[in-house]
């Protein structure tokens, strides 16, 4: 089965789930003529159509990476997730150092100049940048966090 058919199916199912989610949105005491459900429903319907088109008219399959690359990418994902969790409680330096150590596990490829090798490179990058230890943590929030309308 072509990848696009699987993807199309996933899109259709996801869109149906989205529509189901939209239907369960609570209405408020003050509703306008459109309400909070209508627009998500329109999006869901459009996505179902797109999924069906993909299902019926698939493109050619892409070239997928080999098993080893998959493994590396999975390990990298885990590492990034771990880094995300570590950044807040451990602070910037410690978690980055840990991530740099965890690097060793990510890519089993041999160390080659300019290759995919990022063993310990985060640490190396730090040494090169001569970053001094910050006291404790990265402090959150300068302005603009709420500027989601920036377009």
């Amino acid at each position: 089965m072509s990848n696009d058919r699987i993807f199309g199916l996933v899109v259709v199912l996801g869109a149906l789930a989205f529509i189901a989610g939209a239907l369960s949105i609570q209405s408020s005491f003050l509703t306008d003529p459109v309400g909070p459900k209508a627009f998500p429903l329109m999006i869901g319907a459009a996505a179902v159509l797109c999924g069906l088109v993909m299902l019926l008219k698939p493109d050619e399959n892409p070239e997928w990476p080999d098993a080893r690359a998959w493994l590396s990418m999975a390990a990298a994902t885990l590492l990034l997730v771990g880094y995300a969790y570590a950044l807040s409680p451990l602070g910037f330096l410690l978690s980055t150092a840990l991530a740099a150590g965890g690097d060793q596990l990510v890519d089993p490829a041999p160390r080659t100049a300019g290759g995919a090798d990022w063993h310990g490179t985060v640490g190396a990058a730090f040494r090169r940048l001569q970053i001094r230890p910050w006291p404790g943590i990265v402090r959150p929030a300068t302005g603009a966090a709420g500027l989601r309308g920036d377009s």
């Binding site: 997730v81 995300a84 950044l87 402090r139 300068t142």
Partner: peptide, 30 residues
Amino acid sequence: PWVLMPLVTMVSFVGIYSLTGSYFDLLLMV
């Protein structure tokens, strides 16, 4: 590239974290 890629990752993480201050956004980013 072996310096740049972790650097890109790091700047991404720190940039987003300094903006939103939430580990959840980092997970979302991954």
